[in-house]
Design a protein around this nucleic acid. Structure first.
Lengths: 244, 244
DNA sequence: CGCGAGTTTGAACTCGCTCAATGAATGTGG
DNA sequence: CCACATTCATTGAGCGAGTTCAAACTCGCG
């Protein structure tokens, strides 16, 4: 995989949050029109970034929060040996970069998994808008709180789910998020590699591959290359909620 | 273990953040005096809560953020079978409850591990003070950001550390936090049970117990009942930073 | 066509788990 | 104050889910 130039070098344009089809998921959710305009005023939309494009690098100065407009992004920790540990995948309407606020530097790196456009929200400007817009500040708190909840879920997953349950939960999560975006819940593209799925779920490539094979053999899913079809959503759900 | 009445029923008093010895860690860090007074005005200090006291229950309405003033608190998920999965331990100066903001309900439960006093910060009032005090709002963002970073660390720990490394990192983390509080870095009380440590680290009681025994045999630590002495901090550090 | 990255499959191993028994500490009621 | 109950911790033996190592297969691309 070849990495592109930094996304921050991409040509940018002022965002028009009012015309974006994602405001009901993204930061501006349920913001009155006037305040939406203020937010749009500080949001910069990137031009499309190819697969493998870097959004930010671990340890680089923190300047902005990023919202995915289209495509998909992975956030990961880079080990000293070059290995990547995937911390999360981000879909349209989702935001990342909050972990940089505390230390003034990004703690992890983020890269695109497919052609992606992002909205960049300069943190200083965002704080300024937040300070004058109670609703927005509240929404910002909510999003960080959501991120915390999401990570707690992941912690529980890693602590007490079997390999099969982890994969089921992962596929189910993608399914739900795609559905919410108006895409098919039962047929979508898996932009990430087996290695990335494994790293995210705390499993090896081989285990992930075997699980895909088994689930396919059992008629639960159909997976070819990077396309996935969920054939038996009920059974998949059952796997997700098994025991503790 | 017997549970006490809810902490929210505890007699409370207005806090005097100005006289607390923790403001350099807690929410008010580097806040100018005047703003500190505003914060103190909304902070309620609980009377001491005995071991096993509930601070909040999973699914209860979210009203406040809590800061530990003294003692120790665990946050945990309660399985349907009554089992607890520990998500984190909180020491004086640390804050918890952020995960409740997004959904308006606490996602997890929190209970004291020893006699503890807490500061309760009503979220609505806190937002009001934040909206008029830029520095405080920033600090609030920082604390949530820190929580996100801390959980990302935990995710990495669960994904790729051996049982021994996990325990070493855990003990080291406690050591650092106690040191920062002005206590001994190499001798402190482990208020949590082996089961709680195991649950937190994604290990079984037996494994934790065996690791304590082994580390003791190897002269790394000395552990009796709930007291811990780190005999070889250098070696412990080495374990923490081993490979990836 | 041949190369290389990514994936699949098999076989053997291992770390941490499960099950089980014992020991130590704390609390309780007579 | 002591027997008994109860909870928590320790230790051992055997097992198994997932890993490691290795080989084969697939597919896109020069």
């Amino acid at each position: 995989m070849s990495y592109q130039r930094m996304a921050s070098d991409s040509p940018v344009a002022r965002a028009s949050c009012t015309q974006c089809h994602l405001p009901e998921l993204c930061l501006p959710r349920s913001l009155p029109c006037g305040e939406l305009l203020e937010l749009a005023d500080i949001a910069l939309v990137s031009s499309p970034i190819q697969r493998g494009g870097i959004i930010f690098k671990s340890n680089s100065p923190f300047r902005a929060i990023y919202a995915i407009r289209s495509g998909m992004v992975k956030q990961y920790y880079e080990c000293s040996d070059g290995q990547q540990k995937i911390l999360g995948f981000y879909l349209p309407g989702e935001m990342l970069g909050f972990d940089g606020i505390a230390k003034g530097r990004h703690q992890y790196s983020a890269a695109t998994l497919e052609t992606t456009t992002i909205c960049e929200l300069n943190y200083e400007e965002l704080k300024w808008v937040c300070s004058r817009t109670e609703r927005l500040d509240e929404r910002f708190h909510c999003l960080m709180s959501q991120e915390i909840s999401k990570e707690n879920e992941s912690l529980l997953l890693l602590k007490s789910k079997t390999a099969e349950q982890r994969l089921a939960i992962f596929l189910n999560s993608l399914s739900c998020r795609y559905k919410q975006l108006g895409y098919s819940a039962n047929e979508f593209k898996l932009s990430m590699s087996r290695a990335e799925i494994g790293s995210y779920l705390g499993l090896t490539i081989e285990t992930v591959s075997r699980l895909f094979s088994r689930m396919q053999r059992e008629g639960l899913i159909e997976s070819h290359h990077h396309t996935l079809r969920i054939l038996d959503p009920t059974h998949l759900h059952a796997l997700c909620s098994e025991q503790c």
